[in-house]
């Protein structure tokens, strides 16, 4: 699971009002190279919840991202490279996503988060 996906997901258990961001429980993190596409990054940037993204990156061991940023940063190639790396190249291969409200663990195995709810959670 890349941080792009993490930034889009929340716990949707019935009754949970704020299931975002999911806390990352790290088992194993791997790096996988992805072709750089500046247009894609510029399109994605405004959709990203930045604070959650920076925190998630720190959790998986990448602390190079600025805490606060606005769209002017997209002019900088250095920033785009860091953004690209954090968004697409860091994978949570094994671990879990934890609901911030209930503590429910959504396991991540072989890079695939299992977001399916139990019977008593829908």
């Amino acid at each position: 699971m890349r941080l792009l996906t993490h930034n889009m997901l929340s716990s949707n258990i019935k009754g949970v009002s704020n299931g975002f961001p999911l806390r990352i429980e790290v088992g194993k993190v791997v790096e996988k190279q992805v072709d750089f596409n500046a247009d894609f990054l510029r399109n994605m940037f405004p959709k990203i919840e930045w604070k959650a993204f920076v925190d998630a990156a720190k959790t998986v061991g990448y602390a190079e991202l600025p805490e606060e940023v606005d769209s002017s940063a997209l002019e900088s190639e250095e920033f785009l490279n860091k953004f690209h790396h954090a968004l697409l190249e860091l994978h949570l291969e094994e671990g879990a996503l934890v609901c911030p409200e209930t503590g429910r663990r959504f396991p991540v195995s072989k890079g695939i988060p299992n977001m399916l709810l139990h019977e008593d959670e829908v």
């Binding site: 699971m1 889009m8 997901l9 949707n12 299931g19 977001m115 709810l117």
Partner: peptide, 16 residues
Amino acid sequence: VGLLRADNNLPPWRSG
């Protein structure tokens, strides 16, 4: 860039 197990009936996308 992402694969996940989710139910189309109860999609896990964050609000907003």
